[in-house]
Each structure stands twice: as C-alpha cells, then as structure tokens.
Simulated scan of single mutants.
Amino acid sequence: METSKVIVEHIFLLVIVTLFSVLQNAFFAVKLEREGKGGNATAFERVSCAVRNCMDAYPTFLAVMWCAGLCVSQGPAAFAGILYLVVRQKYFVGYMGQTSQSTPGFMFGKRPIFFLILMCMVGILNYLLGHFYGRCYKAQLETLTSVVAALLLIP
C-alpha cells in the first residue's frame, strides 16, 4: 500500500492536469453539440474547426506532458500543462468569434509544448547519461526546469 502512495505522489499533479484536459474536451463537445442544434451553419463550422484543431494537438500534449513529468519533474510539467490548457481555451473562444482572434492563443500555445518537448529530451538524455556513464543530474534538472517554467509566463 505504501508503494502505491509513493507512486501517486510522483504523478498526482499530472493526473490533475489530465483530468482538467478531459473536462475541457467535454466542454468543447458540449459547445459543438449546442452549435449543431442552433442551426447557424457558419457558427457550427467555426466551432467544429476549433474542436478539430484542439483534438489534433491533444495526443501530443498528453504525451509530452507525461514524459516530461516522469523523466524530469512533475511540477514544471504540470504548470506548463495548465498553461497550455488556458491557452487552448483562449484559442477555442477566439476561434468562435473570428478566426483572427484565435491567433494569439495559437502562437502562445507553442511555448508550453516546446518547453515540454525540451524537458522530455533533457530527461531522456539524463537517463542515458546515468545509465551509461553513472552521472545523474536529476536534482539540477528539477531546479532548472522549475525556474525556466516561470519564464513561460513572460509574453
């Protein structure tokens, strides 16, 4: 029982962000359904396109967030995940208005994904260094990613 508690502590933040992302997807689906029943073809087409765009990037987001959280540190990975979900919401709402309103959300959304990809690559490199050369920099990486994650907020 104690082992499962330790495992859950190492992934708890990632689980919470994943749950929020699932709830956000449910919101998108409800919005799409409502627009479909509304009879406005252009509004439905916009919402449908926004949902498709969000769903296209969703598997990548989940994969890199979990990889970064498991390989380096769950705190910065979860922070970047929450930031990505906020940006994705901004993109979705902007797309429902006019497609040009979604551009800021789209552009800013690349930053958390890029950060998570870098975390994954650095985590994998750290694992390989530890495995082949006996050098592990996990503590330093956790500190570095915590500091760099805060920089994601700079516009």
Rank of each mutant, 00 (worst) to 15 (best):
F108N: 03
T42K: 11
K110T: 03
P104R: 00
R135Y: 12
K31N: 12
L32P: 08
F20C: 07
F108H: 06
R34M: 15
S102K: 02
E45S: 11
F132I: 10
G105D: 01
R88M: 05
G36A: 14
F108C: 02
N40C: 05
H131K: 13
Q89M: 14
G130H: 06
Y91T: 07
S100Y: 10
V22L: 12
K37I: 15
K37T: 14
A78W: 02
M96L: 15
E35D: 15
C120H: 00
P59G: 01
C71Q: 07
A43S: 06
G134S: 11
F92W: 11
Q140L: 08
F106Q: 01
A139N: 08
G38N: 13
C71G: 02
F114H: 09
K37Q: 15
A29I: 12
F114L: 13
V17K: 01
Q140E: 13
N25F: 15
G81L: 04
K90D: 08
L32D: 09
F27T: 14
R46Y: 05
F114G: 05
L85V: 05
C49T: 15
C49W: 13
A139W: 08
P59L: 02
M55Q: 11
E142P: 01
F114M: 12
V93Y: 15
C67S: 12
F20A: 07
K138V: 06
A57Q: 04
L32N: 09
A80G: 04
A63F: 00
S100Q: 11
L125P: 02
L141Y: 05
A68Y: 07
L141D: 05
M55I: 07
K90Q: 13
K90M: 14
F92P: 04
S100W: 08
T60K: 02
Q101W: 03
A77I: 03
A41P: 00
V17W: 02
V64H: 00
Q98S: 12
R52L: 14
M119I: 02
M107G: 00
Y127V: 12
T99P: 03
N126P: 05
R46L: 11
L32F: 11
G109M: 03
